[in-house]
Structure formats: structure tokens, C-alpha cells
């Protein structure tokens, strides 16, 4: 009896501990990230864009905000993002959660653009009447001063990224910035190597894989992302002819019956033949009817 009670008590304590740790909603967001704010002003338009991004990327797990119809089969259950608990988080925290993710909650850092991520937050905030936005004080135009160069060296098979800012006072190299390089794939982006930090000259070097498939001509769309404290997040796209030329027709390209582009000859022949036989029979019948009419004249 005693041991049983003890077991129940232990169980209760343990479960309370677990419940507590979930209830705490603790995402451990670093203070500087927590204080981060959007440079985009939230309004009806941004929230509208946010809604459509949300519908594509989040609805499947989180359901419609305020409806409480998130996917209950997951553990933890994805919270309703209109709920008070989520709304208590700062914009910076939401942004951080979106960027990093946690176990089931995916990271959207490399999937959605920074702008889209903020617009989703704008959408999430539209369910909170008491919300007052604090705009980021950093200058949004600053990022436009940044020039990102990408060069490929065939011999070493390396990509050199150079990041510079054209300030009025002269050209400044951005040093010790985090640089991430991606190749665009069919679904999402593929990160190339590890992220690098720029040297004092604003240079980061990436080893490029020799076997990355490109399109028919070997073109690969590269995206480089720069994170700078002063200039913000910068991302640039460049198409380079450095992949392995690849042209694999889809497995069904030249055979399925529903294929729109490809008309199999045997079908054309059979169909035409069938229609022609019908035409002949029809002509014969009409001709016979005409003969029948004439044969009635006696």
C-alpha cells in the first residue's frame, strides 16, 4: 500500500515537472534576438501576403488561427498561433522560432525569405487586437549599399564570395559576417558546405561539389545570404554554369496515355482507323437507303 502511494506521488511529481516544462513555453531565445524587430511595417497588405504564405507552409500543422484545428496527432501539438500564449512572445522571439524551429516545428530560415517570414508574423499578429508594433530602428536602405560578388575557380573548384559596402566615405569590406551559400533545387534550397565567416577583406571561400547536377546546360542557381549586424540580412541570386549538365526526361515523359505533349503513333493510327471504318459503314448505310428509295419505283 505504502509503495503504491509512493509510486503515485512520484508519478505525479514527475508528470508535473513535464507539464511544467511544456507549459513554460520556453524557447530560450537569446536576448539580442528577442529584442529584434521588423523593418517592415505591419498592415493589412502585409498580413494578407502573410496569410497566403502561412496557408502554404503552416496550416497543415497549426490549422487556422483561432479555430483550434491544429494537427492533434503531433506531440507536442502545434499551438494555435492566435492563442494568448503565442501572442505573448515578442516579434523577435517569433522570428527566432521561425528561423530555428525545434524538433517537429521546422526551421524556415532557408525556406522562406526574410520578408515572407516577417509577413507571416504580421498575419499572426492580426489576430491580436492589443498588439502595437515596434519598428526596427535600423536603416532599411542600408542593405542596398552592399555589393556581393561571386566568382568560381575551375581549378580548385571553389566559389569565392566577396562582400563590400559602397559607403559615401569609400568602399568598406564587411568582415566577420556569416555567409551561407545555397543552390536552388526543385524543392527548397540545398546548402553548399558549412556557413563561413568573412575575412578582413570581406571574403569567404566555399568548396563547390563536383557532382552537383545543373540543368540541361549545367546552369545552377546560387543564392548567397549575408548576415550583417549593420546592414541586415542580404541575399543575392546568381546563375552560374558550374553544375553537371543533366537532362533526365521524367520516367513517364514519353509513354503515359495522359501525356499532353506526346501523342503515341499507335493511338493516332488506331483512333483514325476506327473513325474511318465508322465513316465507311455510315456511307454504305446511307448509300443503301438511297438505293432502297429508288427500288421502290415500280
Amino acid at each position: 500500500m505504502y509503495t503504491r502511494n509512493l509510486r503515485i506521488v512520484t508519478f505525479a511529481i514527475v508528470s508535473m515537472f513535464f507539464l511544467h516544462s511544456f507549459a513554460e513555453n520556453n524557447w530560450n531565445v537569446p536576448a539580442d534576438k528577442k529584442a529584434r524587430n521588423s523593418t517592415i511595417k505591419f498592415d493589412a497588405t502585409t498580413s494578407k501576403v502573410g496569410e497566403s504564405v502561412y496557408t502554404k507552409n503552416c496550416v497543415s500543422c497549426h490549422g487556422d488561427p483561432t479555430k483550434g484545428n491544429s494537427l492533434k496527432s503531433l506531440s507536442p501539438v502545434p499551438p494555435d498561433l492566435a492563442s494568448a500564449k503565442t501572442q505573448e512572445l515578442t516579434d523577435g522571439e517569433l522570428f527566432y522560432i521561425l528561423n530555428t524551429g525545434r524538433v517537429i516545428m521546422p526551421s524556415f530560415n532557408n525556406v522562406l525569405s526574410e520578408e515572407d517570414r516577417w509577413k507571416i508574423i504580421s498575419y499572426i499578429r492580426s489576430f491580436n487586437k492589443d498588439y502595437v508594433q515596434q519598428l526596427s530602428i535600423s536603416d532599411t536602405n542600408k542593405s542596398q549599399l552592399v555589393k556581393v560578388d561571386m566568382a568560381f575557380d575551375k581549378k580548385s573548384n571553389q566559389i569565392t564570395v566577396t562582400v563590400k559596402a559602397n559607403e559615401k566615405t569609400g568602399v568598406v569590406s564587411l568582415k566577420d559576417d556569416e555567409i551561407v551559400l545555397f543552390a536552388n533545387r526543385y524543392f527548397g534550397r540545398l546548402q553548399i558546405g558549412e556557413s563561413q565567416r568573412t575575412t578582413a577583406d570581406g571574403v569567404a571561400v566555399f568548396d563547390f561539389p563536383k557532382d552537383l547536377p545543373g540543368d540541361k546546360d549545367g546552369n545552377v542557381k546560387l543564392v548567397v545570404k549575408v548576415n550583417d549586424d549593420t546592414y541586415g540580412e542580404i541575399s543575392r541570386l546568381k546563375t552560374m554554369k558550374i553544375g553537371v549538365p543533366t537532362d533526365i526526361p521524367s520516367m513517364t515523359a514519353d509513354r503515359t496515355i495522359w501525356n499532353v505533349l506526346f501523342k503515341p503513333i499507335w493511338i493516332i493510327v488506331l483512333y483514325t482507323f476506327g473513325v474511318m471504318v465508322f465513316g465507311c459503314v455510315l456511307l454504305y448505310l446511307l448509300y443503301s437507303l438511297n438505293r432502297l428509295r429508288k427500288a421502290g419505283n415500280i
Binding site: L285, S288, L289, R291, L292, R293, K294, A295, G296, N297, I298
Partner: peptide
């Protein structure tokens, strides 16, 4: 009735068609 007169030829045509 297409000029039907019940002639043997007409009967034959009907049967054939």
C-alpha cells in the same frame, strides 16, 4: 418510309443493311 413498296429488292436491302 422512303418510298417503301415491299418489293423483293427493297426487302433484300433492308435485310442486308
Amino acid at each position: 418510309s422512303l418510298n417503301w413498296n415491299n418489293t423483293p429488292e427493297q426487302n433484300k436491302i433492308i435485310k442486308q443493311t
